[in-house]
């Protein structure tokens, strides 16, 4: 341990603001990247499930099962 007290650790010899600002930013960016993927994945499954349910209810036309689709354009 390079610091003796918790206060020393937080103040970082006067450089605390810079060190903690840099670490917090990086952690936010890293966690943000991880969360972005997870949330997008959850959103995708929620929407796809809703669509499947509506298809099962027959409220919308079935797009048809395709075995291997070419890449689709954006809407």
């Amino acid at each position: 341990m390079s610091f003796h007290t918790l206060n020393d650790f937080l103040v970082m010899g006067g450089h605390g603001l810079y060190v903690w600002l840099a670490y917090l930013t990086t952690i936010t960016v890293v966690v943000g990247n991880v969360l972005a993927v997870q949330m997008a994945r959850r959103r995708y499954f929620r929407q796809a499930r809703a669509l499947e349910r509506r298809l099962a209810g027959g409220t919308v036309a079935d797009p048809g099962d395709q075995t291997g689709s070419p890449m689709k354009g954006k809407q």
Binding site: V37, A40, Y44, A48, E52, S69
Partner: peptide
Amino acid sequence: NLIGRLKLTILERERNTQWVRALVREVS
């Protein structure tokens, strides 16, 4: 992270294929 995003992209681009639709039904 790249694998996660790739999987998501695959799901989005192949959303009308049999296997993706089966996967969605399986998950739900």
